[in-house]
Amino acid sequence: MSQTTETTYRVQGMTCGHCELSVREEVEELGGVESAVADRANGTLIVGGSAPHDEIRRAVKTAGYTLLD
């Protein structure tokens, strides 16, 4: 049985519930993503699964936000 890896990213620019939803929906469309939780208060995105970092970065950018290193 494989384990789901959870990775926490910092996201710049999320200010409301719509922002969280936009980021979550874009990231959840990626192959290998099992879950995504965006939190504007903490400026974080927690992704469960195996999607590559660069794909997550592109999805966050597509949603209109910046993934911080």
Rank of each mutant, 00 (worst) to 15 (best):
E6A: 10
V60K: 00
E34D: 08
G43F: 07
C16Q: 05
V11N: 02
A59I: 06
G64D: 07
A36K: 03
M1C: 03
S22Q: 07
A63D: 08
L21C: 07
T44G: 04
V27E: 07
D54N: 13
V60D: 00
V27D: 07
R10Q: 12
V23A: 06
D69R: 04
H18Y: 10
M1E: 05
G48S: 14
G48D: 13
T62N: 13
I56F: 10
G48C: 14
V60H: 00
A36H: 03
T15H: 11
M14C: 04
I56S: 02
V11Y: 06
P52K: 11
G49T: 12
M14I: 02
P52W: 10
L68S: 05
T62F: 05
S22N: 14
G43A: 02
N42F: 11
K61H: 11
G31S: 08
A38I: 04
E6W: 15
R10P: 00
I46T: 15
G49W: 12
R24L: 01
R24T: 15
E55D: 14
A51D: 15
E55A: 14
E6D: 12
S35P: 08
T62G: 10
V37T: 09
C19Q: 05
E20I: 01
S50N: 15
G32K: 01
G49P: 11
V33K: 00
M1V: 09
T5M: 11
C19W: 01
T62Y: 05
T66H: 06
G13E: 05
H18F: 01
T44F: 10
T5P: 04
M14E: 03
R58I: 06
R57I: 05
C16T: 04
T5E: 14
V27K: 04
E20Y: 02
G43V: 09
I46M: 09
L21N: 11
T44W: 06
L21I: 05
D69N: 07
T66V: 05
G32W: 09
A36Q: 09
V11G: 06
G32P: 04
S22V: 01
G43I: 08
E29Y: 02
G32Q: 04
A63C: 04
A51I: 14
G64N: 07
N42H: 12
T66D: 10
E55K: 01
V23Y: 03
D39R: 09
Y9M: 03
V11P: 02
R58F: 07
I46Q: 09
A36M: 05
L68H: 00
T44R: 00
Q3G: 11
S2Y: 13
E29W: 02
Q12V: 07
A51L: 12
E26C: 11
